[in-house]
Design a protein around this nucleic acid. Structure first.
Lengths: 211, 211
DNA sequence: CCAAAACATGAATAGTGATTCATGTTTCAT
DNA sequence: ATGAAACATGAATCACTATTCATGTTTTGG
């Protein structure tokens, strides 16, 4: 056997930049892709439009990305990271689940307002990169579920099916985000959060009937 | 001026069939399109694949549809009609809003289980036919909102922002439908409905605190 | 400063698949 | 029964754009 293994080249992908210039170019392409794909959708977004937006030649795209799908996948991953970070920060140091729920919803809605392309990209991932789509939502569902299970064990919330609840609560956040971004509803985030949190905490029931 | 107006031909579209044979062919193409587009997504679904599935020649497609987008739009409209009908039937003669909520959710989940292609098609409509996408959700949002407003006026539910609530409840249904269809979760519909309805009625709060 | 490595270019290639159309076949009204 | 209207065919066209590549330019390490 020869000496050191050559770091196992598992990258038939676009190459990683090795200088500051390359890093900047790659970044510019990724940012341009977010804007263009977010605005026109994956199939309408041509490489030409992306590189024009990025300010480079078409060929440059292929220095850093294997193809259109790869840049898209990377975008989905990055979005996942950003949303997770936003939620982590928004709910840090909030031990009470109901309070965390409210802060998390606010953090999420603030995030999507600041990244309006998020929705379209994530939504389109179902078709362009199903695995990334599933990974994105699975990570949220799992985290959510375990948070609810902990809260339930701690007596902070009524007992119930944590899995269904996790999906239902994700659905609320997603729908309200969509209302804001896709429907361009201008209702202030605070109002939306208050109304939704009221529903999440108390439900629709008119009276406090059974304990 | 000539005599009778020629019925104002506002159809630059694919022609409407005029015989039973034509009707059947058009229907076959529409059904095939639902299956193929539902399975592969809009851009991967070629006309060739659709007509092969429908059992006719490619050219036949253009007798009845102006193009790929038109058949897609028609699919979205039809889906909207079917879902609305399913919900109307499921909630007919249920005066109480909370009970109607439960029946509606069950009806919706049953429907999506029976039409697994619905999700992908509606979701892709955001890119392929944004107007149809908006119309689809707007019709649900508006109906939902007014139902909640009525229930609130009747004292069947706690007062609250009907608009936000409508979107939140739609989001719950959508997310649970997606969990079933996209994630292929096999939890029985009845269990999911019970858990979700519990959340919708009572919320997460541990105690019946304030009235 | 110099060669090598990185990076950038954009015209040319090449594959795809939507759409058209000239030509048949079937159905319908009389 | 028969001509006209409907319907069906599928090979050829045509437009579009992702990807490649031969050729330069810039940056870096020594």
């Amino acid at each position: 056997m020869p000496d050191a293994l050559p770091v196992a080249e598992d990258e038939p992908r676009g190459i990683q930049p090795k200088t500051a210039r390359g890093e900047a170019t790659r970044r510019a392409i990724l940012d341009a892709a977010e804007r263009v794909i977010g605005a026109k959708g994956f199939s309408e977004a041509s490489i030409g439009a992306i590189t024009r937006e990025a300010g480079c030649a078409q060929g440059t795209f292929y220095i850093y990305f294997k193809g259109k799908e790869e840049v898209f996948s990377e975008l989905v991953l990055e979005m996942g990271r950003l949303v997770r970070r936003a939620l982590t920060q928004a709910t840090a140091n909030i031990p009470d689940r109901l309070a965390a729920e409210k802060a998390g919803l606010r953090g999420f809605l603030d995030f999507v307002a600041a990244h309006p392309d998020l929705y379209r990209i994530i939504q389109e991932a179902l078709f362009v990169d199903p695995a990334a789509y599933r990974a994105y939502f699975s990570s949220f569902a799992e985290g959510y579920r375990s948070a609810l299970a902990d809260a339930e064990a701690a007596g902070q919330i009524r007992p119930g099916d944590c899995d269904v609840r996790a999906w239902a609560l994700m659905g609320i956040a997603r729908a309200l985000g969509e209302r804001a971004v896709i429907w361009e509803d201008r209702t202030p985030v605070a109002e939306v959060v208050d109304a939704a949190h009221d529903l999440i905490v108390h439900g629709l029931q008119p009276r406090g009937d059974k304990p």
